[in-house]
């Protein structure tokens, strides 16, 4: 580490500390807040109210397992359905856009507008899309599906075009010299060569959408978030906690399945098999290989 690095590092640290204290300002409220939180946890949050796992009193449950009439089950299943549909729709819409956005497949006059389109869809967080679509379609799953699809297109499209840009040059050049069309090159070279990563991204996106399903549900866009929102409004925080724990467990399970699937897809072994620590720590901490939104860089080893 040279001197300039140290100076810049110390400077950034000092700036961060300064801004932090600048932003917080009033420390008196904090000490009061901590004891308030203690009271809140003891009196309203804990223990979780597991009645959310029991069948609702209305409508009358006719299913074989009573559990499947519970708020938790209905909410989670709806969230999973919304996430699945949105991920698939998003994938289908994002694929052609990402071909147009990839600099090695398309000319600049196509790539730049396509990237701007993807960035636009991504720049609004899913919850804002959800508010927008709730206004258009009113409260319900349709708004949830639309919001999530929009966001997925922006997000997945970016991951996809970056993977396609990582495709080796030789097959693309061979295709170009032969006179293959752009559509042929995309379908027969770029997509198969990045298939492992594309699939990996879809699985990651599904996981992500399940997690976000909870959030966008809060504004009325369907799924388990809708129930959480209702309990929040009614002040039944112990039920909220129970539902959050259920969602947490579901996300863990999906994380595990998705990681196992991805390591099966990436037979070259560029995704590590899941370990127990990787399951109980957030994926971003425990797994370096996880395709994070910031930069998904996995690839097949050079095949020579």
């Amino acid at each position: 580490m040279n001197r300039r690095t140290v100076i810049v590092g110390l400077g950034l640290a000092a700036l961060t500390v300064h801004l932090f204290f600048d932003l917080v300002g009033d420390w008196g409220r904090v000490s009061g807040g901590v004891s308030n939180l203690g009271v809140f946890v003891r009196e309203s949050l804990w223990p979780p109210n597991w009645s959310v796992l029991k069948a609702q009193s209305y409508p009358v449950c006719e299913a074989r397992f009573e559990f499947t009439c519970s708020v938790a089950w209905l909410g989670v299943i709806e969230t999973l359905k919304i996430a699945f549909v949105a991920t698939m729709l998003g994938f289908v819409v994002a694929l052609p856009i990402s071909v147009m956005a990839a600099g090695n497949l398309s000319p600049t006059y196509l790539a730049v507008p396509s990237r701007i389109l993807l960035a636009g869809m991504r720049s609004l967080p899913s919850i804002i899309w959800a508010v927008l679509f709730v206004i258009i379609f009113s409260i319900g799953t349709l708004a949830g599906i639309f919001a999530m699809t929009f966001y997925t297109v922006g997000y997945l499209g970016k991951l996809q075009f970056e993977s396609m840009e990582g495709v080796k040059n030789a097959p693309l050049e061979s295709a170009k010299a032969m006179g293959m069309s752009r559509m042929e090159t995309a379908w027969l070279v770029a997509i198969p060569e990045s298939a492992n990563q594309l699939l990996s991204h879809v699985l990651f996106m599904f996981e992500y959408n399940v997690r976000h399903g909870t959030v966008i549900g809060l504004v009325g866009a369907g799924g388990v978030g809708l129930y959480i929102n209702t309990y929040l409004k009614l002040g039944q925080y112990d039920k909220v906690v129970a539902l959050l724990i259920v969602v947490f467990l579901v996300v863990l399970v999906i994380d595990f399945i998705s990681m196992a699937l991805r390591s099966a897809v990436n037979e070259e072994g560029d995704v590590e098999r899941p370990t127990w620590s990787s399951i109980f720590l957030p994926a971003s901490i425990s797994s370096v290989q996880h395709p994070t939104p910031m930069g998904a860089t996995q690839g097949l080893p050079e095949s020579e």
């Binding site: 030789a170 027969l188 492992n196």
Partner: peptide, 9 residues
């Protein structure tokens, strides 16, 4: 090309 330019998948 020298690297053959095949689609490996």
């Amino acid at each position: 090309p020298q690297r053959l330019g095949l689609v490996s998948n």
